[in-house]
């Protein structure tokens, strides 16, 4: 399990990508605090909605995150991993209300290699 820290590119790229996706507000959500945020606390996750809605939201967001990693941060997929594997892993975490952003960063670290 990775540690949520500023010097880890998996964490910093994930934070900024979630901010671009309007899931975090940089002026209010400090980087340090956001590692412990639950999926259920993020705007894409409506706690009152059915699982069908949660799954759709998670799939859409996972595709958007992957697109930013690859096209903005020029990330490549980790050895033995493909785009489909990464999307599977990311969307699985996004669908679980009790998972944290650090849990998500952990999956990111297993599936992507960033430029820096």
């Amino acid at each position: 399990m990775i540690e949520w820290k500023l010097t880890d590119t998996n964490c910093s790229c994930l934070y900024m990508t979630l901010a671009d996706c309007e899931q975090l507000t940089p002026a209010n959500d400090s980087f340090d605090d956001s590692g412990l945020y639950l999926m259920s606390q993020l705007p894409f996750f409506d706690n009152g909605a059915s699982d069908d809605i949660h799954r759709a939201a998670a799939i859409m967001l996972s595709i958007r995150i992957d697109s930013e990693f690859v096209n903005v941060y020029l990330a490549t997929y980790a050895e033995g991993k493909s785009k489909e594997d990464a999307l599977d892993a990311i969307s699985a975490v996004l669908q679980k209300a009790e998972k944290t952003i650090t849990d998500l960063a952990d999956e990111v670290s297993k599936n992507y290699i960033f430029l820096l």
Binding site: L6, S30, S34, V70
Partner: peptide
């Protein structure tokens, strides 16, 4: 979809991130 950034532009984004993140919150 997004057009893929050039390496220089991507590095500029990484550099901006390093300045932005300590200021969050």
């Amino acid at each position: 979809k997004s057009k893929q950034l050039s390496r220089n532009d991507a590095l500029a984004v990484y550099a901006l991130d390093r300045q932005i993140l300590p200021l969050t919150g």
